[in-house]
Design a binder for these strands. Structure first.
Length: 285
DNA sequence: AATGGGACCTGCGCGC
DNA sequence: TGCGCGCAGGTCCCAT
């Protein structure tokens, strides 16, 4: 699910709604998502902690705590963070809350954080791939150590230089978090379509013009997706529980067999590095 | 170094 | 109706 725009949207929700709040209780419904430390220490370590800062690095969310430690959250494919009011004693209101749209049924909370303002932050995850880590120093996380530059920190000059060194196919390269942080399977497809570049092209074969187009489309596509609060294809929701609305602007992702919105050629799907890869064989050369 | 496959999980939609 | 298969927005680990 969540790629840079979705994680950024959740991050902004957290900044707005839980900054400065204290965690007063932690309820673990499925310990599998807690990768470190073991669950007793996880609960003990977080109880009475105050959230001092919220950061995003690639697809990783980081809650910096008053003690100097940090809660690192990776949503992987189906993770959700949803802020809600505690169950109301009024059946009428409980019913309304129940109807709040959560795509799929990942609403099943794996961990709940009770906050000092009475609200509950639910960590939901259908597939149990997502990860919670309570650590002393988030900068030492292996994921962080291996992370490439943020797209919005790059210059065209640097990006062009990075591409020139790589003979690998451009699409899997965009998914490589060590190469560039935050792009996933969905946005890689959209960006390459908009830049008119075939996903199979060796990175080093791109012309200066194509590199510039790719650089522009990465930034534009991610910016637009953030503006629309992300793409809700399956499980992803914002902190409020509402879907993001960028999916209606997708041009190729998930559109196999449908006409290209530019030239009417049928969109093709191939497997590349084990991932479904959608593109227009006519527009993308 | 690069690439491919499998592993980690649950659940959906499809064809038979 | 029911079953088996393929597929899913991510990442890590191992083999070649």
């Amino acid at each position: 699910m969540p790629e840079l725009p979705e994680v950024e949207t959740v991050k902004r929700g957290l900044v707005k709604h839980i900054l400065g709040k204290k965690i007063v209780d932690v309820v673990i419904n499925n310990p599998k998502v807690i990768r470190e430390p073991k669950k007793e220490l996880f609960v003990k370590g977080l109880t009475n902690e105050t959230i001092k800062n919220v950061l995003r690095k690639g697809k990783l969310l980081i809650l910096e705590l008053a003690s100097g430690r940090a809660l690192a959250i990776h949503l992987k494919m189906t993770g959700q963070l949803v802020l809600r009011m505690p169950p109301s004693t009024s059946p009428e209101r409980a019913k309304r809350a129940e109807r709040l749209v959560y795509p799929g049924n990942a609403r099943l909370s794996r961990v709940s954080f009770k906050l000092s303002d009475g609200k509950i932050l639910d960590f939901n995850d259908q597939r149990l791939f997502a990860e919670l880590r309570l650590v002393d120093d988030w900068k030492k996380l292996k994921f962080i150590q291996g992370l490439g530059p943020e797209p919005f920190d790059l210059t065209l000059e640097r990006f062009s230089g990075m591409l020139a060194l790589k003979k690998t196919k451009i699409k899997p390269l965009l998914l490589d978090q060590a190469f560039i942080a935050g792009i996933g399977n969905l946005y890689a497809a959209e960006v390459l379509f908009r830049a008119k570049i075939n996903p199979l092209r060796p990175a080093s074969s791109l012309s200066a013009k194509e590199k510039a187009a790719l650089f522009k489309e990465i930034k534009d596509t991610l910016s637009e997706a953030i503006h629309y609060k992300g793409s809700s294809v399956d499980q992803y929701v914002q902190l409020s529980g509402e879907a993001g609305s960028y999916a209606k602007y997708h041009k190729v992702y998930g559109r196999e067999g449908k006409p290209c919105l530019v030239c009417k050629t049928l969109i093709k799907r191939i497997a590349l590095g084990g991932r479904g890869t959608y593109f227009c064989p006519h527009c993308q050369r």
